[in-house]
Amino acid sequence: MNGLVEILGLTKAYDEHHVAVSNISLTLPRGKIIGLLGPNGSGKTTLIKMLNGLLMPTAGSIRIGGKPVGVETKAHVSYLPDRTYLSGNKKVKQILDYFADFYKDFSRERAVGMLQSLGIEPDARMNTLSKGTKEKVQLILVMSRQADLYVLDEPIAGVDPAARDYILRTILNNYNPNSSVLISTHLIGDIEQVLDEVIFMRYGHLVLYTSVDNVREKHGKSVDAYFREVFAC
């Protein structure tokens, strides 16, 4: 079977001096939880935006489920951006309506169930929720879709450890052998045991793509420790 995501010679240059992603080729399989790791400015978010069709590559191509990124692939990619995009004065349940309207693969039942288990009121307005709760609501929305690929940009930054555990458990509970989850983060230690594979990026280049247990076996240290070594300043 072909990979879920096929990236070939992908490059994004904002201008000739600012190459954010440089000639990356990569095939991601189905059924994996994959960490996208790299220091600030390594090109993670630029890559993610190209996967979602929010930025056009300067060169190279991306195929998801065999199709070039576009309207069709967007219906099968569930994306959690690194900043909020939900309108503050909307109620949680109104946002559920939006998602149900927008995405055929959205399960309101699943979302309502998860909101309930966290004690989040569907009648609450987004701007009355704490930062951590808002992030949980957004993750719940994104994970309530029946997508092929989930792309989570920094889902655990800026939330407390209990919320982080909840987020990781939500990702694990929604695991499905036909879809993959790509999680970008620089907080590796917290999510290492949840990941199958890791992608290391630096200065827009692909440094390494391997399994977590491979790193541990080969280098006798955690991915977190190895990352600090590779990217030591």
Partner: peptide, 17 residues
């Protein structure tokens, strides 16, 4: 596998292995 992976908070593929 799924239950134990959730309990241990590890990836289901790792538990499977």
């Amino acid at each position: 596998v799924r239950e134990l992976a959730a309990e241990a908070a590890v990836n289901p593929n790792t538990m499977q292995k």
